[in-house]
Each structure stands twice: as C-alpha cells, then as structure tokens.
Amino acid sequence: MDITDNDIEKQDSTQDYGILQEMGDCYTSVGNYTEAHKCYEKAASLGPDEPGPYVGLGVIALQQNQLDDAEISFRVACRLNAHCAKAYAGLAMVAQQRADYKRAFEMYLRCLELDVDNLIALLGLFQTSCQMGSFAKVIHYLKLYLNMHPADTSVMFPLAALYMKDGRFEQSKKILLELLTLNPDDKNAANLLEEVEHGLAKEKKAGVQIG
C-alpha cells in the first residue's frame, strides 16, 4: 500500500493536535489560562472532531466562573463524543456551581457510568448527595472505586461518612479503623469515629431496652 502526501499530512496534523492538547493541559494546570486558551483553539482547528480541546476550554471558563461559556464548551464536547466522561463531569460541576444539585447528581452519575475511576466525579457525587440526602448510588460508586484503590484515604472518609449518615455504623467503623491505620494523624477520621462509636452505643442501648 502506497503512503500518499495526504496520509503524511494527516499524521503530522494528528501529532500536532496531540502536542497542542498536552500543552493546553499543562498551561491550565499552572493557571496560565491565556496560553492554554490559545493551545486549545489551535488544537480544535486541527482536530475538529475531538472533544478534548472543548473540555479544556470548559475547564478554563469554569475556573474563571464563566458558567455559561463553560456549559457551552462541555456541551460541544458531549456532542462530539457522547462517551466523553470528562465532559459530563464538567457539566456536573457547572450545575453544582449553580446549586442545581439534581442535575449535578445526574451528570456525575453519567460520568461514573463511563469512567468509574474518575475521582473528581466521585467526590462531586458525594457533595451533591449530602445536599440531596440520597446516598445509595454514591455509596455504590465509592465502593467500586475503593475496590480498585483500597488505600485511597480521600475516598475512604466520604464513604465512612455516608455509611454513618445511612445508619450503617459497623461499616463506617470498619473503614475508619482502616483509614486511621493508614493515617493515624487524621483528626477528621478520629472525630467521625467518635460519632460512630456514640451511634453504636445508642443502638446497643436501644436494643437492650427493647429486649
């Protein structure tokens, strides 16, 4: 099979797109949004069917509290790729900023259906679930994540807190003891464990009285 000039140009264009996307991500990570914006714009022109540059533009707009612009960018990314988990996480963060917790919850769930390993979506789902008082689904995804990352204390604490809110004190205690084994100086975990122990004591006392 002969390689044509068009094939070479297409390959070069793909490589340039990838470089520009990475540069945009790097500039965003250090807060240089002006240069990041330029990189994403150029990347979008080279890869018009790629969602990545629009996710990047959405992140910049979100960081600058330009929620309408952020939503538009994330929607474009979703239109280009209906399976772009980061775009749904972006839409969820926009909704959360607007205190539209129901929509944020739905978008975080959609993100996690596509990428159960997305920590931003997991923690966002935890925050919105606390606002809504709906814990079952977020507990499910936090457990899935911990199965893959059993020593991730940033997820262990929210899961323990949700178990406690759901009245499942034994499960909460088990996770908190594991967390404190990994990080003995975690004061938040120690304080929550005290609350859990208090809840268990009340349950035991109520059980004795009923008996």
Rank of each mutant, 00 (worst) to 15 (best):
A85E: 09
M107R: 14
E106S: 15
R110G: 03
R110W: 08
Y88L: 04
C111N: 06
D100T: 05
A92K: 06
C84Y: 02
A89T: 13
F74D: 04
Y88R: 04
R79H: 08
K102C: 11
A82W: 08
H83G: 03
N81S: 11
A104G: 10
K102S: 15
A99N: 13
V94Q: 07
Q97P: 01
L91S: 07
R75Y: 00
V76A: 05
S73A: 14
R79Y: 08
C78R: 11
E106F: 05
V94F: 04
A87V: 07
R103E: 15
R98P: 04
Q96C: 11
C78I: 09
A104E: 09
A92S: 13
R103H: 13
A104L: 10
S73P: 00
G90S: 08
C84P: 08
A104R: 09
Q96M: 14
Y88T: 02
A104S: 14
A104T: 13
A87G: 09
E106P: 00
S73R: 05
L109R: 12
Q97I: 01
R103A: 14
E106C: 07
S73V: 01
L91E: 09
G90L: 03
R98G: 05
H83L: 11
A95I: 04
R110I: 06
A89G: 11
K102Y: 12
Y101S: 07
I72M: 12
A82N: 13
F105W: 15
S73C: 15
C84A: 08
F74R: 01
L91F: 10
A95M: 07
Y108Q: 09
A95G: 06
C84K: 02
L80R: 06
Q96H: 13
G90K: 03
R79N: 12
N81Y: 00
Q96Y: 09
G90I: 01
L91G: 06
D100Y: 02
E71D: 07
E71C: 01
V94C: 09
K86A: 14
